[in-house]
Simulated assay, not measured.
Amino acid sequence: MLPRSLSTAILLLASLGTGQSATAAEPATRQRLAIIKADDVKGVNGKWDRFIALSQQRDIVVSLGIITESLATQDPKYVAWIKKWADTGEVEFWNHGWDHKSWTDTAGKKLSEFGGSGLEHQKDHLLKAQSSFKTATGSPYTIFGSPFNAMDGDTARALNEIPELKLIYCYPGSVVNAQLKGKVLLPMTLRGEHDGTSKPNFPKFKEEYQKKDGPALNLAAIQFHPLGFSEEGFKHYTDILDFLKTEGWTFILPTKYLELQTQAAAAARP
């Protein structure tokens, strides 16, 4: 599940961070790192177990985003399920906000939990989610991905005040990314669902992948919503995984990427 050569992965991450090309010592086969980002956990459900099992059958680790209001009651069965999977070391849970709500204000403007809702609202929701998850598991979240992938300047300010959240799922090129301080970004450079939420389409994925593939495509967080998968959706998901494995992608957890980033930074220092 981890890169065959840790030194190669470190070299790759260092070159990603500096924008410089890798040295001649790098093997001809480049290492490409993929992170599975699965959204909207809100309770125990057989579809999550199936999603994890299908991934594990391919030696693929996954990260699951919790809508943390679902932990407000600290349901023992739900907490035990989270701990069971976290303890395997093959599943990582992340902060997907508190309530995942959107609404329209009196002026007709569309708002969401982390889009236009204001600094106080956003920080309160982040901290409630951090506290609830820590109560359940003993440790705080270290990863954040916003509902609807919406972030604004207030989101950046709130996140910058919460050092526990070290990794941020984001759209590549978002103006908010530059406002995040001391965070490691997990860019969603490959789209997992081409026919709408919970509807992966392997032929469309492959077509878009082939258009994007090139030396710059070395890291990809790929988003899915397994709770809404149909039978066909599960098949398209596994076809995507199998394809990426044949393309030489290595699947890692977000915290492993953080570890590699830290090692790369240390190796780059004189």
Rank of each mutant, 00 (worst) to 15 (best):
S7M: 13
T8R: 12
T8Y: 11
A9S: 00
A25V: 13
T29P: 03
K42R: 14
G43P: 08
D49I: 06
D49H: 10
A53L: 12
R58L: 09
V62F: 07
L64F: 09
L71D: 07
L71P: 00
T73E: 15
P76A: 08
K77H: 13
W81D: 02
I82V: 15
I82N: 02
K83Q: 14
K84L: 10
F93L: 10
H96Y: 11
D99A: 14
H100Q: 07
S102C: 10
K110M: 14
E113I: 04
G116V: 08
G116F: 05
G118L: 08
G118Q: 06
H121V: 11
Q122H: 08
K123L: 15
L127W: 11
Q130D: 10
F133E: 03
A136K: 06
I143C: 10
F148C: 01
N149V: 01
A150L: 06
D152I: 10
T155F: 02
Y171S: 09
N177S: 05
G182P: 02
L186M: 11
P187S: 00
L190T: 02
E193K: 00
D195A: 15
T197R: 12
S198R: 05
P200D: 05
P203F: 03
P203Y: 07
P203L: 11
F205L: 05
E207P: 01
E208Q: 15
K211I: 12
K212T: 09
H225Q: 09
S230D: 07
F234G: 03
D239V: 07
I240M: 15
L241W: 08
E247Y: 03
F251G: 00
E259Q: 14
T262M: 06
A264Y: 04
